[in-house]
């Protein structure tokens, strides 16, 4: 975020000798990293920090709204959340928590070594942090992949029996970057449960988009209550990749849990990816030796960002994995 500015070399002549840098009002020649509109490195550092904290405040509110959505949905149907939480792998979630905590540690150590001007140690720490981020995403990928295969997803797809291969295929498709809404989505004839219309996908001109909306939830409820309706192609008792549809105790509306689960962990995952880009940029600059004990602000600010990613996960983990 900062570049070393080229200063005219006659600065020394203009200002004579310098006192201790931190108290010098005209330290621009002494501190090549100092921007022209700042008087001292301390002022520049404090500005950067405050700016970053304000940005983190926006991140907190950004995630905060999703936490509010979580709280509202959960307050409405706590039984859904404790039921659906069973489908999340606590061990993988806990492992990810540890990975993120350790990567936060290496990031904090990186800031320490940057402050001490230890270039090699800084680069090593940044690489370790990067590895932690990558590890987190790999573990997350396995979690997602397993769930999507088992139709543990948001929306009406949740109620498609996993044995229905076509349904699973579509669920996977759905999880990928989508096309613009198609003209009409064929509702699989075999699946009685997804009588819920794909509201978002249907043109409003299609009368069915309006009328069935009111029966939608009842359709979902039927799927839950009546196993025969819910899993027409899988007789009760048949071994299936995912058992959620055959669980008679399943409360209706579990798809909402997965909606908020994917929304929150997905947004968090995006932040991890952004964090990796930031760390990569820091690694490049650190390898070039651009950071000294006088000037390490980008490392510090990148670190703050990485810690907030960790901090969000610290809350996501118990709220999703530990509530049954």
């Amino acid at each position: 975020m900062t570049q070393i500015s080229a200063q005219p070399s006659d600065q020394h002549g203009a200002h004579g000798s310098h006192g201790h840098g931190g108290h010098d009002d005209h330290g621009h020649s002494q501190y090549p990293f100092l921007a022209h509109h700042f008087a001292t490195p301390a002022q520049q550092f404090d500005s950067g920090k405050l700016g970053m904290w304000l940005f983190l405040a926006t991140e907190v509110l950004f995630f905060g709204a999703l936490f509010v959505a979580y709280a509202v949905l959960r307050a409405r149907s706590p039984e859904v959340f404790s039921f659906a939480s069973h489908y999340l792998d606590t061990m993988l979630g806990g492992l990810n928590t540890c990975v993120l905590i350790l990567s936060s540690l290496t990031m904090a150590l990186g800031v320490y070594f940057a402050q001490r001007g230890k270039k090699t140690a800084l680069v090593v720490c940044l690489w370790l942090t990067m590895a932690g981020a990558a590890g987190f995403l790999v573990i997350k990928y396995f979690e997602y992949e397993h769930k999507i295969h088992a139709n543990l997803v948001w929306g009406p797809r949740f109620y498609i029996p996993p044995a229905d291969a076509a349904g699973s295929e579509e669920a996977i498709l759905l999880s990928k970057a989508p096309e613009p809404p198609p003209a009409a989505v064929p509702v699989p004839a075999s699946a009685a449960a997804p009588a819920v219309p794909m509201i978002g996908a249907l043109p409003a001109a299609d009368a069915s988009a309006i009328a069935p909306a009111s029966v939608g939830p009842s359709g979902l409820k039927m799927a839950a209550v009546d196993p025969a309706l819910a899993t027409p192609s899988v007789p009760p008792g048949t071994e299936s990749e995912s058992l959620h549809l055959e669980d008679a105790s399943m409360p209706p509306g579990v798809h909402q849990f997965f909606a908020i689960y994917y929304a929150m962990t997905g947004l968090h995952g995006v932040h991890v990816v952004v964090g990796m880009i930031v760390i990569g940029w820091l690694i490049i600059r650190a390898s070039r030796g651009e950071f000294t004990s006088n000037y390490y602000t980008p490392v510090d600010l990148g670190g703050l960002y990485w810690h907030i990613v960790d901090l969000v996960w610290i809350f996501l983990f118990p709220l999703f994995y530990l509530i049954h």
Binding site: L73, P217, L220, G253, Q256
Partner: peptide
Amino acid sequence: ITLGLLVVERVLNVGIFNPSMGG
């Protein structure tokens, strides 16, 4: 984030705001 959810809702049919899906 609200608009983000709206896009996701429109494209992926997530249903957090959709009453017909319990939203």
